[in-house]
Computed example of a mutant assay.
Amino acid sequence: MHRKCAQSQAAYDLIHTHCQIIAQITRQLIHRQNALFMRRCTLPDDALERTGDYPTLAGERIADAIGSPEEDRFVVPPTDGVTGGMVPPRYIDVEKATIGALLHDIGTYAVLKNDGSNGEPLSFDGPRYVEHGLIGYELLLNEGYDESIAEFARNHTGCGLTREDVIDQHLPLPPADYVPVNLEQEVVMVADKYHSKSVPPKFLTASAYARKAARFGAENKQRWLELVRKYGEPDVPALAEHYHMRLVD
């Protein structure tokens, strides 16, 4: 699909690479979530207690305090560099989420102001950029993709665009909710915030995106902080180093 939609090699390299990175972060976040879920299912009922907003495995704290081998079996190790996170209500489908991540930004080819075919730097049409999710959704449906896959494109913008957001911000979209409808879509939306298709592309830490989210109001920033608490934080500095891209902290 990316090869079919890309107007130039530069457009392909920017957008396809971004989608690959988001798929990688998605898998990392889900591996952590599923590790927490599976460990929760195998622990005795009294091994889980709630601390603040986090369902916390009691054994993690006990093992830190006394180092007992018996208690060590309760420890949930970091998964793929992700730290924190809350126990999810169910096992998350990593295969479906990965496919969704690889296709979530397919609509951005249609909102390029300069597509790179003339040898000039890529640029996006700022006022139309917010349309890329709906464009991608319709494109995937027209290509025969299932609704459940096409929705990854429709429902990943920002921290979830509500009907009220669309109206209040005068966005060029039909008034509707453009929010994830399941955990798979939500985790892709979260992963997407850690990398930007700016020219040149860059990684953002959770704190950096919180500042960006705050530009759309305190409620939007709070949505993001709650998502970070829910899914934990990937090792963004390590990803930036691996891909030789700038890191905004």
Rank of each mutant, 00 (worst) to 15 (best):
H132G: 13
H132A: 10
G133F: 13
G133A: 08
L134K: 00
L134E: 14
I135V: 14
I135D: 04
I135L: 08
G136N: 01
G136H: 03
Y137M: 00
Y137Q: 06
Y137L: 03
Y137S: 08
E138C: 02
L139R: 01
L139S: 05
L139K: 07
L140F: 05
L140V: 12
L141P: 01
L141C: 04
N142V: 01
N142G: 14
N142L: 07
E143L: 12
E143H: 09
E143G: 02
E143Q: 07
G144V: 04
G144T: 03
G144N: 03
Y145R: 00
D146Y: 11
E147L: 02
E147W: 00
E147T: 05
E147M: 08
E147Q: 08
S148C: 07
S148V: 01
S148N: 09
I149T: 10
I149M: 06
I149C: 07
I149D: 12
A150M: 08
A150V: 14
F152R: 00
F152H: 02
A153F: 00
A153W: 00
R154N: 00
H156A: 13
H156W: 08
T157V: 12
T157Y: 07
G158W: 14
G158P: 08
G158Q: 01
C159R: 11
C159V: 15
C159S: 11
C159F: 09
G160M: 11
G160A: 13
G160C: 05
L161K: 04
T162C: 15
R163T: 12
R163P: 02
R163I: 07
R163H: 14
E164S: 14
D165F: 04
D165N: 11
V166D: 06
I167A: 11
I167G: 05
I167P: 01
I167V: 15
Q169E: 07
Q169D: 11
H170I: 04
H170F: 13
L171I: 13
L171A: 15
L171P: 12
P172V: 06
P172Q: 15
P172E: 09
P174K: 06
P174E: 08
P175D: 05
P175Q: 03
P175G: 12
A176R: 09
A176I: 06
D177H: 12
D177L: 14
D177M: 06
Y178H: 11
Y178R: 15
V179R: 14
V179L: 10
